[in-house]
């Protein structure tokens, strides 16, 4: 984890985190509604204790891991990451969490494993947004195994050292800082290690707009808007747009994962 932290710290150089208020009041979590303020307003009813994560598939020790069990075995550290939404806004978040690689190590990844699939909790009685079929619930996401094992990839359990709020994906969520925010799936209840590319929620909804990889890339536009620039949250009414960085500024750490791939085709 030490090497990974060095990478994260290097990438975080000079980053000024957004305020707690900004990070926790402007969220996309469509299970609570499509408005940016809906999650903060409606996520309060989500039961987050007890919480178990089912880890299954190509692992040596499949099972239901309780949140406490996971927390007792993981080492928490702070990672200050850029967060770039596919909608062309961005913020900087001081996450607390542990590397996904460590959690996968706990379960023991078997040979033949190539991808990792994730699933968000689905509780219609606690999630007013799922009565509308904005997406095919439950929300699912996936990573290639090498992406999942990259030291930058973490499971976050806190922000500013406090427990992560429900609207931000309590009690634990994925954070993949070089990909668009929707890849960083919230309130994870299942992690499956698999041998083929798993379905992902936004790709199922609109495959021409949301690819499996969804790496932040200023040169590959969303069909409906440019990804060349972004607006930083907190700049107010007259903030100017900033250029978007390749892999959201984490090019040194992750470009090697995609060597030889045509990123405009594998978007």
């Amino acid at each position: 984890a030490a090497a990974g932290f060095a990478g994260g710290a290097h990438a975080a150089e000079g980053l000024e985190p957004n305020s707690w208020e900004e990070i926790t009041s402007y969220n996309n979590y469509y299970e609570f509604g499509t408005g940016k303020d809906d999650p903060a307003r409606y996520a309060g009813d989500l039961t987050i204790a007890p919480w178990t994560v089912k880890i299954d598939g190509l692992v040596d020790r499949p099972g239901n891991y309780t949140f406490e069990d996971i927390m007792s075995k993981m080492t928490l550290e702070e990672r200050i990451y850029r967060f770039r939404c596919v909608e062309a806004w961005s913020m900087v978040v001081p996450w607390t969490g542990f590397e996904l690689a460590d959690l996968l190590g706990l379960a023991g990844v078997q040979s033949g494993a190539r991808y990792v699939a994730f699933e968000t909790v689905l509780r219609p009685e606690e999630m007013p947004g799922v009565s509308r079929r904005v997406l095919d619930w439950p929300y699912v996401e996936g990573l290639r195994l090498d992406e999942a094992m990259n030291p930058l990839t973490i499971m976050a359990t806190g922000i500013y050292g406090r427990d992560i709020p429900r609207q931000n994906g309590a009690p634990l969520r994925l954070v993949v800082p070089w990909k668009y925010g929707f890849k960083s799936i919230k309130s994870v209840v299942r992690i499956s290690v698999v041998d083929s590319e798993p379905p992902t929620a936004w790709n199922k909804s609109n495959p021409s707009e949301y690819g499996f990889y969804s790496n932040v890339n200023p040169q590959v536009d969303h069909p409906r808007w440019s990804q060349a620039t972004e607006r930083e949250i907190g700049g107010g009414l007259f903030a100017s747009r900033k250029p978007t960085l390749m892999f959201n500024g984490y090019e040194d750490e992750v470009a090697g994962l995609y060597e030889g791939m045509d990123l405009s085709r594998n978007f």
């Binding site: 009041s25 940016k36 806004w89 009414l237």
Partner: peptide, 15 residues
């Protein structure tokens, strides 16, 4: 509202 925070932390899209 947009200039006093009433439209949230991203007032441009909101406006």
């Amino acid at each position: 509202q947009g200039s006093t925070g009433g439209l949230g932390v991203e007032p441009i899209s909101a406006l």
